[in-house]
Design a protein around this nucleic acid. Structure first.
Lengths: 244, 244
DNA sequence: CGTACTATTGAATCGGGTCAACGTCTGTGG
DNA sequence: CCACAGACGTTGACCCGATTCAATAGTACG
């Protein structure tokens, strides 16, 4: 197998955020994986309402998971970063309730859903990991729901930016106190249930207060302490997460 | 084992909503289960921030899962009905990010988290079921997030009432076109990110339009077709769900 | 009966939405 | 090299859905 697709040499495994796996587990993942796939920024990975028998791990790049209403109103449910696993939410014999879209150019590891059952039979530790990943994603959606339901616009944006910064940092995407974030203000608005205009004004306000710097697609947090307090941020565990 | 705690005779298993299990699986569940537990209406099952090593299945009654902010603002994340499984969201060595509270008197099946790993090793089919349940709960939270982020107050309430009605119906809690719902308007407001006052006025409006009847804690849907259209409701799969 | 929780309603207010322009940057083709 | 299109960001004016405050009814229960 080429080094490009070898799970043993997976660049993500070098990140401290992920827990180590047994060699046998990694070997299984390598056999489970059917191929790698690239999706260009802005293109769909999964269409809302589509039926799919694939599972994915994000190897590199950013994406988002979203649902929309009949008239086009759209809600981003969560953002997907390297190491995130997607596809469990949908059932084999049902149309997907959500869509997935690449935010930057994305590389995905593709797994055939048909062989998922085999994983459960042969590698209980990996099955356990999958459940963990699913539960953890739910925590993230929970958090976003709390924001959208109960936080003010400033708090929501503060929250989301800290959250994304921390997550990106945990998978090694932070350099020099700054993270490249391939998301537009429209994406932030769609994730937080705000209008584009109000999102812009609020971001502006946070910038002027010196709490954040968001320029040229890169985010730097100016005053983490104050921002954290403002947004009532509570960290989720980001270490020792499984990687499949 | 007394018939009260026998999983083979579990009253929920008589409901068509749940998929049948092998006798061996049920026997395992019965051994996995440490005890049964009753919690009175209004009391906590799990406190936000508490550490717990228990997993629960709701055997009867209603509950809700919630998170709150430092200053007391509270968001209900989802409602728990008979057959729902809770506890996976939190990690063994972390404080719970959410709380769980009984809405009515609730009976729970209690499982020791320590033996969860044993389940994964010995009963991959049940492990698979647990992942399914986790993914399904995420779908419900997704849906609620879409509502809170993008639907108007009328749409949100329409959505939630249809959703709860359908779920209750699927586990046999509907009699004569009407469901007993042990939730106050405050709970609806907390679930939908609305104020109590506005929730009341909106409910009133839906009643006057003849779309719903909500009296004495019982909900009847007056015109499902129109309500469904109004709320842009799309059904989640409620059949053949696993029961652990 | 009194206490406490839940529902109801009106009035005033405001956070955020909508509309409408304008600016800025980048890439593209004449 | 410049003209133009298209995507994204910025800003002001106005409006509306939802919040907040406040007061009044039910209803359950000891």
């Amino acid at each position: 197998m080429s080094s490009e697709t070898s799970c043993t040499n997976c660049p993500l495994r070098r990140q401290a955020a992920f827990r180590a796996n047994e060699a046998s587990e990694i070997a299984f993942i390598e056999r489970f994986k059917s191929r790698q796939m690239r999706v260009a920024a802005g293109l769909p990975i999964l269409l809302e309402g589509e039926r799919s028998d694939r599972l994915y791990t994000i190897l590199s790049g950013w994406a988002h998971r979203h649902r929309s209403l009949g008239d086009g109103r759209r809600q981003i449910l969560n953002f997907l970063l390297p190491g995130d696993f997607v596809g469990l939410q949908q059932e084999l014999d049902h149309d997907a309730m959500h869509g997935i879209e690449a935010l930057s150019d994305v590389t995905l590891c593709v797994f055939p859903r048909q062989r998922l059952w085999h994983l459960y039979q042969e590698y209980p530790s990996l099955a356990y990991d999958l459940t963990w990943l699913c539960a953890h994603e739910e925590l993230i959606v929970d958090e976003n729901l709390l924001s959208v339901g109960r936080r003010s616009a400033v708090e929501r944006i503060g929250m989301l930016l800290i959250h994304l910064y921390k997550r990106a940092e945990s998978v090694g995407l932070c350099s020099d106190g700054s993270v490249r974030m391939p998301i537009s203000q429209q994406h932030i608005a769609d994730a937080l249930g705000l209008s584009l205009v109000h999102t812009n004004k609020t971001l502006r306000r946070l910038s002027l207060l010196g709490l954040i710097e968001l320029r040229g697609g890169a985010l730097r947090i100016g005053d983490l302490g104050r921002l954290r307090q403002l947004a009532d941020y509570h960290a989720l565990p980001l270490r020792a997460r499984p990687l499949i």
